[in-house]
Amino acid sequence: MAHDTHFEARSQVQQEYYRKENAAKMRSQVTQFAIMILLTLVAFASAVADFAPNFVKPFVLLLAGVQVVQQLYAFMHMEDKKAYHIGVISFFMWGGALIAFTFFLCFLTIIWW
């Protein structure tokens, strides 16, 4: 496939800045990872601890929700507003989540066994 895009070489200074910027972004990714591990530990600990299930269940669900948003926006870069057609991507992902919610609603309320 032919392309018209031309790639300009970075100067020495630009290249150093580019690498430093990438390293800084990677450090923030590692921080996100540390938060995920912490949330996972809290989730498992609260399930093992002798708390009321009615409290623990929504709590661990909330932690899972936070972790998923971290995965999507930090690790999978949905936060990058300049990414190609990011609006379409967000629309489909959140649309999928909305449809997913209707499944849960339906299977847990309207259907009974």
């Binding site: 992902m93 999928g96 989540a97 449809i99 997913a100 919610f101 499944f103 339906c106």
Partner: peptide, 11 residues
């Protein structure tokens, strides 16, 4: 689409 697939299995 995979989100929807897994949602049906979870539900």
């Amino acid at each position: 689409c995979e989100v929807v697939l897994f949602a049906s299995l979870f539900a």
